[in-house]
Structures are given as C-alpha cells and as structure tokens.
C-alpha cells in the first residue's frame, strides 16, 4: 500500500525535509505528495500528515521521517543515528531569533569541521532534516550566502546543488500556484453556472 504525504505549503515552518525525503524515494507509486494551499491540514492544527490507505500513520515531521525511513531504508539512510539530528533540526534550527539560533549553528559548524556530511560519507536522513529546517528558516538565507559559518555554507551549498534538495522550494511554489489556479477555475465555473441558472 502506498503512502501519501500531506503537506501544508504555507506553514510557518514548511516541512521541506518531507518533500526532500519524497524526492529521494523517487517512486510516485510508493509515495505521493499532496500539497495543501494553507497553513495547516484542513480540520487539524498540524502542518503535515502521512497517510497509508485510509489511515493517518504519522502526524509530525519527526514521526513521518521515522516511518518513511523504516519503509525505505536504502534511500533514507542512518535512521537511528539521525534521530538526534532530526530533533536538533526541528527544535533548534527552526528558531528565527538569530541570537538564539547562533549557538546551535556554532554546534553544527564545529561538527562539520572534518565532516563533509553530517553522518558518515553519504547523504543521510540527518542531512535531509537539518537542510530542510535551515531552508525553511527565513533568517538563514543571508547567513548562508555570507558564509557566516564557513563549513555550514559549504555543506549547505553542496546539498543544494543536488536537485532533490535545491529544487524543493520551486517545486512547492509551483504546486501551490497550480492549486490556486484550479481553485479559481472551479470558482469561475461555479459562478458561471449560477449565472446561467
């Protein structure tokens, strides 16, 4: 049975990590993404959900990544070792106050002194989560661009050059525009009908 990731495209912290995980899995029969043009999933207060069949199997980014990593261990690597990084990413790296954030960026910077990836020598779930959270954090754009943290910028740009990371925001905004267009057409169609009646 296949999974559907529902994602609120206008959440205060967009769950880019989930979209990247979807791209890494790269099998639309196994995992599809359903974009929602709003801040939350309708009828809930949450910004992402993982559905399998008719059932909600996970309803936070951490849980969703967990379930997907269990289902696709060959593409979402190092699940266990990534856990603390997923927690770190969602708890610390989504903070928008730079002063508060900078302490944790220093931790990441030190970690990347001798490391090209967060764990080992391949892209793991830890990279996906940390990169996704930094991408979603509006204060990070200029921090990355100006190489305030040299290692973080190097690592970030390296992953960004991978389309599965680098194109995630464009894919999302395209999907949201598409939704808007559809909604407008629907509305337009309905209005017309009313007029005709």
């Amino acid at each position: 049975m296949s999974y559907v990731i529902k994602i609120a495209g206008k959440a205060p912290v967009v769950d880019y990590a989930l979209l990247i995980a979807g791209s890494l899995i790269d099998d639309s029969k196994a995992v599809s993404i359903q974009y929602i043009d709003g801040k939350t999933i309708p009828g809930t207060k949450i910004s992402a959900q993982l559905i399998k069949g008719d059932e909600v199997v996970a309803s936070s980014a951490g849980e969703i990544l967990d379930v997907l990593a269990d289902a696709f261990p060959k593409v979402l690597l190092a699940k266990d070792a990534s856990e603390k990084w997923i927690k770190f990413a969602y708890e610390k790296l989504t903070i928008k106050n730079f002063k508060e954030l900078s302490k944790d960026l220093e931790t990441l910077e030190a970690h990347l002194n001798f490391r090209s990836f967060i764990i080992g020598y391949k892209i793991t779930l830890a990279d996906v989560a940390v990169w996704g959270c930094l991408r979603a954090n509006p204060v990070m754009g200029s921090v990355i661009r100006n190489s305030v943290y040299v290692n973080v910028s190097r690592w970030y740009h390296f992953l960004e050059s991978d389309k599965r990371f680098g194109e995630v925001a464009t894919t999302l905004s395209k999907a949201l525009n598409e939704l808007k267009k559809e909604a407008k057409q629907k509305q337009g169609g309905q209005k017309k009908k009313v007029h005709m009646a």
Partner: peptide
Amino acid sequence: RWVDLIQEEADVPVDQRIVLNFDSELPRE
C-alpha cells in the same frame, strides 16, 4: 576534511588512512 572524504571514496586501506579526531575542538573560523 577533503582528504578524509577522498580516502574513504578511494577506499584507501584502513591501516594507511589518516586518522582524524572528528570532534577536535577547533576555534571557529
């Protein structure tokens, strides 16, 4: 950092690799 990555990818025999203490407390650059 780069030598460590390349020695891994080039599969240099473990006993000939450079050994880094990944958690060395270097001053922030």
